[in-house]
Amino acid sequence: MSAGADHGTKPMMDQLIVQSLILGLLQGGLYALLAVGLSLVFGILRVVNFAHGEFAMLGSFAAVFAVTSFGMPAWAALIAAAAAGALVALITNVVVLRPIYLSRMRQKGEYTIIATFMLSQFLIAATTVLFGTTYRNLPGLWESNLNFFDYVYLSGNRLVAFSAAIVMIGTLFWIVYRTDTGRAWRALTQSPLGASVVGIDIHKYANYAFLVSGAFAGLAAGLLAPLMFVFPSSGVVALVKAFIVVIIGGMGSIGGALAAGLLLGVVEVMGTIFVASGYTDAYGFALMIAVLLLRPAGLFGKMGRAI
């Protein structure tokens, strides 16, 4: 290769790296938004919620129907997605999980896993029966491709999705560290017994956690819908991504979920562009396995468990 060719290749490579890095971060913001609710619920209630992906899937269906059946604008569809996710999550907590907490059975944790897994399968089957297996799409809020200084090219929808994700996670941080609800959640995370003896209403704050978890999952799916397809088993993909993020970031950590989401997005995009394009999901799994081997408690370790 000639010196002139080297001069031409390096700036192109730099541009590709910057472009992939930004794309990865944008994708990662959505992964973080998907995962943060799963992490919140695990931190507060020690519930590994296998139905979390279906909160997202039902949110994206609500967004699609809000636009296609009711003619709502795209921004209203996002509110519908968040509301649907929140409602299903709240019902899940009250109808499926609360009877398990209140029972005197052993191994409640294992029963919550089984119950949420069965609920997940039920929701996928019910959605398939009701709406079929058609792949659906949703118009985005900003359907244009943006050119930044002829150097970075981004989809407007991705930028909107990332901005919304960061705003929502920032809001969650504010709730956790500045409000009574957040204090109650932190207390429950750090010592369920302590929270109980000081008189924190565990059921009330568990409901709030599920509402937020479902709303975030629904909103994330609504934001992803213009970039991907909506179908009954799309929640499985969302759940897998959310689990990878939560395991990498440290279960129960909101900050960890944000950092891990961004990291996962960057690793996936970088791997797809610079290693091989057919293994996008495999890069995430490889990262998760590496974290499990080197830091089993997640990148944010023990500290992260305090949400």
């Binding site: 010592s191 003896v197 008189g199 209403d201 500290m303 305090a306």
Partner: peptide
């Protein structure tokens, strides 16, 4: 009664097990 109501009724319990909020 749920613990919330017992605390409101004036009962305070200091358990033997650790119940401190360690990150606060």
């Amino acid at each position: 009664l749920p613990t919330v109501d017992l605390v409101k009724a004036g009962i305070s319990f200091v358990p033997q097990e650790s119940s401190v909020f360690g990150q606060m």
